[in-house]
Design a protein around this nucleic acid. Sequence first.
DNA 1: CTAACGTATCAGTGGATAATGATATGATGA
DNA 2: TCATCATATCATTATCCACTGATACGTTAG
Lengths: 116, 116
Amino acid sequence: MMTNDAQGDLLAADALELRAKLFRGLGDPSRLAILDALVSGERNVQEIVGDTGLGQPNVSNHLRCLLDCGLVSRRSEGRFVRYRLADRQVANLIRDADRLLAATGAGIDNCERYTE
Amino acid sequence: MMTNDAQGDLLAADALELRAKLFRGLGDPSRLAILDALVSGERNVQEIVGDTGLGQPNVSNHLRCLLDCGLVSRRSEGRFVRYRLADRQVANLIRDADRLLAATGAGIDNCERYTE
DNA sequence: CTAACGTATCAGTGGATAATGATATGATGA
DNA sequence: TCATCATATCATTATCCACTGATACGTTAG
């Protein structure tokens, strides 16, 4: 009676939410640009602002998001705050995504459900 | 003069958009549920509707999105349409995400930038 | 041909969220 | 303490997108 209907998926609904939240966290060009900037190493907010061309409040907001998500970590250095990737797997996940993009060609471009 | 400022990132802006689009495609619980249903094998739309508890038009919309993105493929069988994962790497990417989630604890939960 | 079924599309709606400007907090140096 | 700099927060706005119900399209059976 609970072979493969919605029951099992309802139980796994939290896991789906969590996964979705992670992917959504990575699903923003600004945050990806920030993470890219951090792949090269530790950076403070101003440097990230310079690297990405984003506004400072915007960067801070995204960094807070990434920090809460556990994707980056931070340490204070005087009045600077230096951020870095929290885990090697973050960079790995992004690289795997690039591989998948290479495999699917530019198929993603064709998706018209949401804006390019 | 073009050491590490916005220039390089601007050139890579398209790549960022593409990656972001892929992650956003995966950043929805409904689409993840659909992909989960397809991990076990090929399914038609009705079966997916049953597995996920989503509405049929909703499922069709998401499937179109996933199809356009090249994440799933389809084949007609009479009046049924059977969908399957387009690439092993899709499942791999999801599994890598789960690993990262395990590594970061449930940190993602803490991110308050967007709704749980 | 017509009815029934499976799937896809369309328009409308509500909710979520990224970006911005103004401002607050915190730290350093004179 | 006061001025300055680095970072964080807040409120606003405009946009985007997931879901729903109605409906169209395509296929098969009688």
